[in-house]
Design a binder for these strands. Structure first.
Lengths: 215, 215
DNA sequence: TCCACAATCAAACCAACGTATGAATGAAGC
DNA sequence: GCTTCATTCATACGTTGGTTTGATTGTGGA
């Protein structure tokens, strides 16, 4: 078989799995649904990915990796140019995810919903994925925030970074539903609007006065 | 059979289901696990709840309902006393959930994790639960926030309420894991600390300047 | 005392699951 | 033109899922 064909088979599986995981969750999605959607043979999953568990991991890391590379590259650029403001750090953190969620080939907010569930999916594979794939990013952005907010303790920086991530996860997980929940007030496909509202809220939250007495 | 015994059977099922849903998710939890944990017969679930789907709904609404009643009662008190500040509104919104998550009989953050997953669980029963059980609360708190932040448009109030809910959901879903992720810096069982940090961030976020030109 | 009936129980049903197997296929290298 | 080998395929395996059944139990009311 041609190498391009193998790529195509694996990608078709990943694409279908991604769509179905986002729509119904990991546990509720069967390999038979995936392979029938992807128009490949049932056995192809175990042939190319060994198990459903490893397929799950592949589905997630295929998207998380380039997203986090973009985050770190943007943060690096900010720091070498000594241009780290709170807004620019938040933009470096938020924008890669939003770009991914609203990317052209992504018809129905698929990747976004999947990413939004990264922290809440009870599936065993997730716990290790969060540490493995997100650990470096969390550490680097915590440092960047601490440098920009020197009056905060480590604890407070962690709390606020946690909330900042939560806003993103919740927004991604809501996806299309935001339109209905807001009775049409909000258009979750308007990237600039989403980004501005998130950064505006998070910037203020992160800048809130410290709750601890000055040292 | 005694009515108290029936209550006990139903409650035992609800308790076990709640614990297992929080731990492994809805789809990954079988009725056999639940009934064996609850020490009741397998058929008891379908006898008392008709189906797994209705059991799921019962598990959630048993906790959501008193929580939301408390929220609305507290908001009502604030408004009749004309004591609605941003802090007090946020407290009325956040505290009932945190109280529930940290309640004594709740050994392992069970209810909290379950609540944190309310918005991300892909299970069909959730979509209707969110609208049915949370609709009134969202509407009432949106109004209260709009009154306290009169310079904001409806759209901006919605965005910010959405973020404010996201912070809570993300914190609840993280539960115990917050301790590990923060390398011991944070104690998620310290109710006052959790509440103060959340309110401090959310108050600032909600108070951020409007992004729209003044009318 | 006995009836009525809500509640419990062991057992079965069948569909769907993840995974494994061995044969079929077909492009690449000699 | 033949062999090799990665890939695809139809099919089967054993397990587990939610739900149903019909018998059994035991308590409250007549």
């Amino acid at each position: 078989m041609n190498e391009a064909n193998v790529r195509e088979t694996k990608d078709r599986i990943l694409d279908a799995a991604e769509r179905l995981f986002a729509l119904h969750g990991i546990e509720a999605t069967s390999l038979r649904q995936i392979t029938s959607d992807a128009k490949v043979n049932l056995a192809a999953v175990n042939y190319h990915f060994n198990s459903k568990d490893e397929l799950v991991r592949s589905v997630y890391s295929r998207r998380i990796r380039p997203m986090n590379e973009s985050r770190l590259a943007r943060l690096q650029t900010l720091e070498t140019n000594e241009a780290s403001t709170l807004e620019s750090i938040l933009e470096a953190f938020y924008e890669p995810t939003i770009d991914m969620a609203l990317s052209l080939q992504n018809h129905g907010f698929t990747i976004g919903q999947m990413m939004g569930r990264l922290y809440t999916e009870p599936h065993g594979a997730m716990q290790s994925l969060i540490v493995t794939e997100m650990g470096e990013v969390a550490r680097r952005f915590a440092l960047a925030l601490a440098r920009t907010l020197p009056h905060l303790s480590q604890r407070e920086v962690f709390w606020r970074l946690h909330f900042t991530i939560g806003m993103l996860a919740h927004t991604m997980a809501a996806g299309e539903k935001l339109k209905h929940l807001s009775h049409g007030l909000i258009n979750p496909h308007d990237k600039q609007e989403v980004l501005r509202q998130m950064i505006n809220y998070a910037r203020a939250g992160l800048s809130a006065p410290s709750l601890e007495p000055a040292p």
